[in-house]
Design a protein around this nucleic acid. Structure first.
Lengths: 281, 281
DNA sequence: CGCTTGATTGAGTGCACTCAATCGGGGTGG
DNA sequence: CCACCCCGATTGAGTGCACTCAATCAAGCG
């Protein structure tokens, strides 16, 4: 048992490694920049320390398992974890499988806004209005941890390291949505498909899975929707990439794609990044 | 002074109104749905209670002011709050003004990924890797609260209601990025421009500002970049909307836009939402 | 076997892009 | 004060990329 004060201090200490850095005074100018510039050279030693991404993901998942002790459940392709518009109560942490998030507009347009894999969270977008903002659909057999949001909140209060983990996950999600937007807005369709494959490969590598042999769990229609083009265009682009030896189709269907040389494919994206939209300045 | 147990209980109590709802048992099926279906009809009574959005925003800002007591600063058009790639230490809460977030890819493409106004936060995307993911640029004179992230974290630990506020803000940000993606992917350019204006108007209304007379603080190039089209196309679309009486240009330059009938403009968006991309299913 | 669903490929079209000229406003300096 | 320039916005002409429509093919399944 601790009194209030020592309790606070202990929390502060537990928080310390996750905080960016205690800011000594008020920033002298507006830009978010250390007052003492020499600080800039100090490597940032927060939770985002220099472990490799896979290690960090594993540690994150261990943290959640220990502090929340969630139940988990197996899902099968097509299963829906939550529906847009329904009350939000639960978030999920993906242990395995691939999932798509589908947003629907009032007038019936639907859009795959995100793809999620092991280590990603599902449901954060529901926090804002107490209702889910999209459907979460499993594209493959998988397993998710079920975490009631109330439980998560309590855990965050008691375990600041859990809060840091959650913040980081949401921050990552924001970043990734923006990358999608950037891809759709600035790349021609051919380069966009190529970049999509690169991103998927990198994503797999980061999770310790095979990155040179992708098994897309989606139809061309899904792909096209996600990438902002028609299914025919997706098909044509993939065929062209195949013709140009940048990818190869697998034996078991044309949803299986081999990337012989990821670096070359990434170069291709850059070279094909013709300024499709207005240049700034 | 309280002992640990009562401290926990008090936190739980303080947290209660912000939690979705204590889930009594484990969900019987995977879908995020109350075990007792009658619950579905209980209005969600969390922080997202039935106040109007503007009231909620004001309350949120008051909460932050009280619990964090941030300093604030005036910014002028063109000021940069933080640069992509630089160490992340600080988040900002916007008191006034308009801001753009600019992402840059490795190969030099740049993309306006978000526009922010009063009540929005800036900097969350930097949490993930300890470095900012984009530039934040003021488009107008304004005022922001400066909140060191370490301070915010501490505040969240001590005041769960602050944590709830922060979660909600990040969740909202995720939602909005997705709306952008949906807009770019599913709308033809003409409808996209119209929807952009609708969104801006709704945004202003929600903040208690004039919604029928917009003053865009951006060039056509900025607009085009944000909307995923060229500046010429933006110009043509605006001219057409003007010709069709859906908008009117102001006396003081063509960045000032009057919307005589927002409902009609919104109808126009829907009618123009030709399925540009692959339909799902 | 026929049916269905998904993928590919072709032909033709149109929307949005590129290039280019013009216009207008605000600031500056002669 | 006016001429000039610069920047942003508009508009036109022409082109090409990605869309639409349509036919074909392949695989899975009752």
């Amino acid at each position: 048992m601790q009194n209030e004060r020592s309790h606070q201090i202990s929390q502060r200490e537990r928080l310390a490694p996750f905080a960016a850095r205690a800011v000594p005074g008020l920033p002298s100018n507006l830009i978010d920049e250390p007052a003492d510039l020499s600080d800039s050279f100090t490597p940032f030693m927060g939770f985002q320390a220099m472990q490799d991404p896979q290690q960090r993901m594993l540690e994150m998942m261990r943290t959640v398992r220990e502090l929340v002790q969630p139940t988990s459940k197996v899902v099968r392709p097509g299963d829906v974890l939550y529906h847009s518009g329904l009350p939000f109560n639960t978030v999920f942490l993906i242990n395995s499988g691939a999932y798509k998030l589908v947003s629907r507009s009032l007038d019936g347009r639907e859009q795959i806004v995100s793809l999620k894999f092991r280590g990603d969270w599902l449901g954060f977008s529901g926090i804002a209005f107490g209702r889910h903002a999209c459907d979460a659909v499993a594209m493959d057999t998988g397993n998710v941890s079920i975490i009631p949001y109330a439980t998560l909140l309590e855990g965050c209060v008691r375990h600041p390291e859990l809060m840091a983990v959650v913040h980081e996950a949401m921050s990552t999600e924001i970043r990734r949505e923006r990358e999608s937007l950037m891809s759709v807005c600035t790349l021609a369709s051919q380069a966009r498909v190529a970049e999509f494959l690169c991103a998927w490969a990198r994503s797999m590598a980061q999770r310790g899975l095979r990155a040179d042999e992708l098994t897309l769990r989606m139809t061309r229609a899904d792909l096209g929707n996600y990438l902002g083009m028609t299914l025919e265009t997706v098909s044509r682009c993939l065929s062209r990439l195949n013709r140009e030896q940048l990818i190869r189709f697998g034996e078991r269907g044309r949803r299986q794609i081999t990337i012989p040389d990821l670096a070359r494919l990434e170069k291709y994206v850059i070279s094909g990044s013709s300024a499709r939209t207005a240049r700034l300045q």
